[in-house]
Nucleic acid binder design. Structure first.
Lengths: 150, 150
DNA sequence: GGGTAATAGTTGATTTTGTAACTAACAAGC
DNA sequence: GCTTGTTAGTTACAAAATCAACTATTACCC
């Protein structure tokens, strides 16, 4: 059986398997933007995400970032350490519960955030521009559903 | 400024940033299925993908899998080694070009593939079932576009 | 209040991935 | 047919992700 035949017999092929497709799209969509925060600031994706959360939501604890970003706490812990080391954020112990600490961006961190936020917004617009407005809105809704975010 | 306020002021928020959304959806969608191939056969995602390619397309070289799956050749190389070790596939040198080798599933490999293929198809149907038919078709088309697969 | 369990966050060991350099085989030009 | 360049695939080393165990603190509850 040739490749073409086996493809035809199979109505379920790889190009249509949603987990695979989603992964390909996600990887591809991350690539271009990744080169910006990596290139300009030597940041990892984990670090970018933490920075982005703090920039968007203001003061947060590591635990809150875990939940929102759905990342493991060890990843957060190391990303926070790196961002602190670069003076992008500062930590403040919660005096009410001394296990927790509040994270906020320093002025430097905010500058970096604003820069990257701008790039991100532009890139998002570029991606959205592949579709017309209703399609793009529908896409977001479907992705949120698939991600279990609704 | 409270979290809610800062969210409202920002028309561009994280829940709508496509690379983030895509990533969340992809991770979430992979999770359930991942537990099957991991749990039943102790396979990694890379290995599952190679197995899937060979099952769907028949005989292939590592290079062809690289291109189709968009995975780096070292990942393929290691996944192939693992699958061979478990006797899921066998390699045959191409006598025309002795650098290349053809990979095919063994009967054992085919059995595993058929099992996982069934699970994957069912899971895909479940995910697609979150939307009506046209929406699901549109979603696939949009993801292919985002992935640069069209 | 003392013991047990739970929680926030960190650290260390293991596994997996990514990057570069490598081997072996082929190709092209002269 | 020898040199140079390219390609298929592997291996070695560095970077990063995962998993388990750990510290410090708080909550429960008898």
């Amino acid at each position: 059986m040739t490749h073409e035949e086996s493809k035809k017999n199979d109505e379920f092929d790889l190009q249509n398997f949603l987990p695979f497709l989603l992964n390909q799209a996600a990887e591809h969509a991350s690539l271009e933007f990744q080169s910006v925060y990596k290139g300009r600031y030597g940041m990892l994706r984990t670090e970018w995400r933490v920075l982005f959360h703090l920039g968007l939501f203001g003061e947060m604890t590591a635990k809150e970032i875990c939940e929102r970003a759905r990342m493991h706490k060890t990843k957060i812990s190391r990303a926070v350490a790196k961002l602190e080391q670069r003076r992008y954020l500062k930590r403040t112990r919660d005096e009410g519960d001394r296990r927790a600490e509040w994270l906020t961006l320093t002025p430097t961190g905010q500058t970096v955030y604003r820069d990257l936020h701008g790039v991100a917004a532009a890139y998002d617009a570029k991606l959205s521009g592949l579709f017309d407005a209703e399609e793009a809105a529908l896409l977001r809704k479907m992705l949120q559903r698939l991600a279990g975010l609704d």
